[in-house]
Simulated scan of single mutants.
Amino acid sequence: MGGWADVPGQPKYQRIAEQLRRQIDDGALPPGAKLPTEDELQAAYGVSRPTVRDATDVLQAAGLVERRPGRGGGVFVRERVTIDAYAWRDDQPMSTTSEADLFFRTVREQGYEPSQQFSTRVEPMPADYATLLHVQPGSTAAVRRCLRFVDGVPHSIQDSWYPQWLCEKIPELFSPHNIAQGTTRLLAERGYHQVAALTTTGARMPTPIEAALLQIPVAAGTPVLHNVLTGYTADGPLRISTATFAADKVRLVSAHGDIDTITRHRR
């Protein structure tokens, strides 16, 4: 493991953390691997136990490792699956493919197995969403949620918000069951054709509920990407769909120009 070249002003624990991070990134410490013990790291780098602990704390805060207690415990490299999400394909407002089918196809194309859990609840419309949908804040909304998994590990939280006036016209939106053809197609069948979508994406720390659902360790310090899509008919805004991802589980892929050319040549 050896020492390192001195960098003026950089604490020793940060240099140790950087060397361990590189070993994780290049596969020398693969997912599931156990890091050297604190005693081994002390001997390898000639530092104190608190310095070693500070170094592994940095990796834990970055979501790269996790601590396991008990016999056989220690610090282990976290298992992580990162899925590419293709915005130019999956967020098309007039797609005839259901949202669930798009998710399943995207995940399977990358060699993993998708699954999801579905639920519906009724909640007051948040003020920012109400502004986007031109309805009164606090008015009733149906929230249709898909908690999605990749190889059995929570991947994203997908919430779709439908204002009360729309639910009164299409009561299936209140249904506790998944809509087989997808809500976009159901809305189109009832005369609400979505012709445009506006998407914004930001990063923030997860709420306690999001951290629990996505199994983000409390000490990890992993942010989430929060994607808000507003769907429009020709007459105005119709619905909001949000997607919340642990930032280390997704890459948002965008493309411009002749998409067919990219598809033909992309490996």
Rank of each mutant, 00 (worst) to 15 (best):
S98F: 04
V75E: 05
V47E: 02
Y86C: 01
G70I: 07
R49M: 02
G73M: 04
P114C: 11
R121G: 07
E123V: 05
V58S: 02
L64G: 10
A100K: 04
A85Q: 12
G70K: 04
V107H: 07
S115L: 09
G74T: 05
I83V: 14
P114Q: 08
Q92R: 10
D54N: 15
V122E: 03
V122I: 08
V81T: 14
S95P: 00
A85W: 15
R105V: 15
T96N: 00
D84G: 07
A62Q: 11
G70D: 05
V75Y: 14
G111K: 07
A85G: 12
F76M: 06
R67E: 12
A87F: 00
Q60D: 12
A55F: 01
P114I: 08
E66K: 09
S48L: 04
G46P: 03
R121S: 10
A61N: 13
R121V: 15
G72Y: 03
Q116W: 14
I83R: 13
R89T: 06
V77R: 00
R71H: 06
G63W: 08
E109H: 09
R78P: 02
G111D: 01
S119C: 05
G72M: 00
D54T: 10
T120V: 14
R67N: 10
S95I: 12
G111S: 02
D84M: 08
